[in-house]
């Protein structure tokens, strides 16, 4: 399989670029550090406005690192990222919102206050915060649980609350780091369907990190397959289905073939990652 470090536009030719990552390399640890790790190795990608790009790859391949670099939470060792026309030099709360896997809701605040606090950090005037927070909770069907604490609601509800928080910020870009990774299969399927419906109603740009092949094929417009560490783009797949996606899509021959193709691409990389981990221990 050809190693591809730069993904160029194809089906999205002519679309506006929402995020551009150019020759990004990221190394954890200093030059003198024996444990120095190259997480990302000279990768470039354009994410187009309104698309959902899934990043998939073996554990430790740098998917989350790339997402954090795109959102300004980590500075790349080399290379640069642009959101729209602006160079990313730190978090951009007016342009980019995150949805994380865990430790993402503040347990000391109620669900609605978790949304309000995000609006406060973003600088939204105080008189607007409450209405916007409740509207966002309404949008994810969680308004009845707005006054509950995160410890009192299920894992699926917590992720919906996170999604509400991200939506309330009204950013054009959502960066989602394995948002449904800790949920059971049934719940993540339902949330995936909801996300697909949301995509059909908005023109948000989403970069979505996942380990699930089925989730990637079901949600993505494009799936970027990453190699074992140091992370490079190995292949990119166009899914070529509109949103919202019919749950029956998962039963189709096309879906099965794409999932199998992805597995074929990933198998050797996962083996390399596992062998690498075994060699270290």
């Amino acid at each position: 399989m050809q190693q591809t470090s730069a993904i160029t536009r194809n089906a999205n030719e002519g679309s506006e670029i929402a995020i551009h990552a150019g020759n990004v390399t990221h190394i954890f640890g200093s030059d003198t550090d024996a444990q120095q790790v190259t997480a990302l190795d000279d990768i470039s990608i354009d994410v187009f406005k309104g698309e959902l790009l899934c990043l998939i790859g073996p554990s430790g391949c740098g998917k989350s690192t790339l997402l954090n670099i795109m959102g300004g939470l980590i500075d790349p060792t080399r290379g640069d990222v642009q959101v729209g026309a602006a160079k990313v030099a730190g978090p951009m709360p007016h342009d980019v919102a995150f949805v994380f896997q865990e430790s993402a809701l503040f347990p000391w605040s109620t669900v609605v206050d978790n949304v309000i606090v995000a609006l406060e950090f973003q600088g939204v005037p105080k008189e607007e915060r409450s209405a916007r927070a409740w509207n966002a909770l309404e949008a994810v069907d969680l308004a009845d649980f707005g006054n509950h604490y995160p410890g009192q609601i299920s894992g699926g509800m917590k992720q919906r609350a996170q999604l509400a928080r991200a939506l309330s910020l009204e950013t054009e870009i959502l960066l989602m780091d394995e948002p449904f990774g800790a949920l059971d299969e049934q719940t993540r399927m339902i949330l995936g369907e909801d996300l697909s419906v949301m995509l059909s109603k908005t023109d948000k740009t989403i970069v979505f990190v996942t380990h699930s092949l089925a989730e990637a094929v079901f949600l993505a417009d494009r799936v970027a397959v990453m190699s074992a560490r140091p992370g490079k783009f190995k292949e990119i797949i166009e899914v070529g289905e509109g949103h919202p996606r019919d749950p029956d899509f998962m039963l189709s021959e096309k879906f099965g073939k794409m999932r199998n193709d992805l597995y074929g691409m990933l198998h050797d990389e996962i083996r390399k990652a596992v062998d690498g981990e075994n060699a270290q221990t």
């Binding site: 995150f98 994380f100 430790s103 993402a104 950090f121 973003q122 600088g123």
Partner: peptide, 25 residues
Amino acid sequence: AGYMRVARSMGAKGFPMFRRVLLPA
């Protein structure tokens, strides 16, 4: 570190970060 990362991603810094995240945590 997860709470800090979430707060930073939303643009938190200074006293709001202290009042809303550091102190209650």
